[in-house]
Design a protein around this nucleic acid. Structure first.
Length: 302
DNA sequence: CCTTGCCTGAGG
DNA sequence: CCTCAGGCAAGG
């Protein structure tokens, strides 16, 4: 998923599609199962809820559902409490058993597919959930620990969730236009703002702006209604495409043969600065907006 | 240095 | 309320 390629340059940051693909793959393992064991690493910023508390609250609970809002996974438990998971930059959920640890991967060509053992039981696995009557466990690995785990009491309001805007796949066109067209900030900044629209990260923001032919520094207020509608269509289109592909952007590895596993073939501007635009041949540019790398075609995107 | 999310402080 | 710079966390 990330940092595994040793020299790969495409960051495999989980955004909405990767989180949704993870949700779909993990849900069958969790839902309607009773949590029997909870193992963690020592307390750290990764645990918004201390490991000991987590253990006490989760053991014996049955998982009723696994939902998603933006980049957050939300596990529902049978006592009305919830378990919040955020994959951060390098988080991944792994299905594992003593017999055959297996990674929830996004590509059959991923090196993890042929070498799953390298991920078994290493020091980066911070949360392990075991279930009654099920050999397989669900592991949360996260080498950089930008990910987060939080237990929410029944009825508790999570400030993190409360701040989120509508999910990028759920928001309707009118609501999107209303929120984006009255903001003066650059479109790139607006798309990254999780309180406006939840789920879009750096990669898909750049790709969506390119497909909508909009300059990342354009102000939201400068968007016509049709342009705003087109932008939302681009965003949702690329997110759905990515989900269909299995969340390709989750990979940032270099395959044994030196290729990148096909990931960058799906990217038209992200990390392609200095290369020719696939549409017009103009050299693609990289600028920094809000401290984030931003890639675009100066000719196609106005 | 690079990434995300969160926070605070400085300004409009 | 809105915008934006800067810092933090973490590791390769």
């Amino acid at each position: 998923m990330t940092g595994l390629g040793g020299g790969a340059t495409v960051p495999g940051v989980p955004e909405l599609p990767e989180v949704e693909v993870t949700r779909r793959r993990v849900a069958p393992l969790l839902v309607d199962r009773e949590i029997a064991t909870v193992e963690t690493t020592k307390p750290s910023g990764f645990f918004l809820t201390p490991p000991a508390t987590l253990r006490r609250r989760l053991v014996g609970r049955r998982v009723t559902e696994l939902g998603r809002h933006g980049k957050y996974l939300i596990g529902g438990l049978d006592d009305g409490s919830r378990l919040l998971l955020h994959l951060g930059m390098t988080g991944q959920l792994v299905s594992a058993s003593a017999r055959s640890p297996r990674l929830f991967r996004v590509s059959d060509r991923h090196p993890m597919a042929t070498d799953p053992w390298r991920f078994a039981g290493d020091r980066h696995t911070h949360l392990r959930l075991g279930f009654r009557d099920l050999g397989e466990e669900v592991w949360f690995r996260d080498p950089r620990r930008f990910g987060r785990v939080e237990w929410l009491a029944p009825g508790a309001v999570s400030p993190r969730l409360a701040k989120l805007g509508l999910d990028a796949l759920v928001v309707d066109p009118a609501a999107f236009c209303a929120v984006i067209q009255r903001r003066r900030a650059p479109l790139k900044a607006l798309l990254l703002d999780q309180s406006l629209l939840a789920g879009v990260g750096n990669i898909y923001a750049d790709e969506a702006l390119f497909r909508a032919r909009l300059h990342p520094l354009r102000s939201g207020t400068q968007l016509s209604h049709p342009a705003a509608l087109a932008l939302l269509a681009s965003i949702q289109g690329i997110l759905l495409e990515a989900i269909d592909r299995g969340g390709t952007s989750i990979s940032d590895f270099v395959a044994p043969d030196g290729t990148d596993g096909g990931f960058s073939a799906n990217l038209r501007v992200y990390q392609r600065a200095g290369m020719p635009c696939l549409i017009c041949g103009t050299v693609l540019m990289r600028i920094v907006v809000r401290g984030r790398s931003t890639h675009f075609c100066p000719r196609c995107q106005r």
